[in-house]
């Protein structure tokens, strides 16, 4: 597995929001084809990490670097990151009143294609692609005619995120709590979408509070994030151990390490 190319490397990353340090030196390397999971209690900085990789404004990177496909991302605009293959499925997908889902998805896919020197899709080509991916996430055909996420249920919003993942077909999928608030059926559909996306060239970073989604998408590596630091890394067994013993367990054992 380590023979494949390194897709992204987070090096000693420090991030603050309004003078408060949230990420306190994160190191993480993801190779092509790998699935990583980041677990941790609420407020530990999981979303911050995913957002900073995607380029969300409002965070200041005070130290370290993020190197993606061999180049630093720090100065790169979010839309350029997206076009070069970084995709963030939002913890809280945003509603876009009056912006038709169809129009939005086509704008997105055309922007990505243009960056890669490809022609815009014709309406026909796009409709075909959309139909295929919509079936993958079992989304109601009426939803793509509506405004993006407006009046969608929680599960529909998350499925819409996976639909976008499938359409844009990035290199790195960052899934921020995509499992939260889903019933078993929706969880199965969403996981199926991610598993279809997975391939030897594609990488996934799953951010989650619970182990549940990892029953459906098996991670190669699990990292535990507590208070802005990765305190433990392991294979998929770590997730189960965490589920069993709770976050207090890592907190305590970390405390011991720090103290000793």
């Amino acid at each position: 597995m380590s023979k494949s190319d390194k897709l992204i490397e987070v090096k000693d990353l420090r991030v603050s929001v309004e003078e408060t340090e949230i990420l306190k030196g994160i190191n993480l390397s993801i190779h092509e084809g790998e699935v990583h999971a980041i677990m941790g209690p609420n407020g530990s900085g999981k979303s911050t990490l995913a957002n900073v990789i995607a380029g969300r404004p409002g965070y200041s990177v005070t130290g370290g670097d993020i190197v993606y496909k061999g180049q630093s991302l720090l100065e790169v605009e979010p839309e350029i990151r997206a076009r070069s293959g970084i995709f963030l499925a939002f913890q809280y997908p945003v509603e876009l009143p009056g912006v038709r889902t169809w129009q939005f998805l086509k704008s997105a896919i055309d922007a990505v294609r243009k960056e890669n020197g490809e022609d815009e899709l014709s309406v026909r080509e796009f409709d075909q692609l959309l139909e295929e991916k919509r079936n993958l996430v079992e989304m109601d055909p009426d939803l793509v005619k509506r405004s993006v996420n407006e009046g969608f249920s929680g599960g529909e919003k998350k499925r819409n995120e996976i639909l976008q993942l499938a359409l844009l077909d990035p290199s790195l999928a960052l899934l921020d709590e995509t499992d939260s608030g889903l019933d078993i059926d929706a969880l199965r559909i969403v996981s199926h979408g991610v598993n279809v996306f997975k391939s030897p060239e594609k990488s996934v970073l799953i951010v989650t509070h619970y182990q549940r989604i990892l029953d459906y998408i098996t991670p190669d590596f699990v990292h535990v994030l507590v208070d802005g630091r990765i305190v433990r890394s392991g294979d998929s067994k770590l997730a189960l151990e965490l589920e069993e013993k709770g976050y207090e367990w890592v907190r305590e054992s970390v405390g011991e390490e720090v103290n000793s």
Binding site: A82, R100, S107, L168
Partner: peptide, 22 residues
């Protein structure tokens, strides 16, 4: 940001939002 994270540039994003509003 949501729109930009899908590859849509700032100008197109704001236009889609304003068009959508109108």
């Amino acid at each position: 940001f949501y729109m930009r994270s899908r590859g849509v540039d700032l100008e197109t994003a704001s236009r889609l939002i304003i068009y959508g509003f109108a």
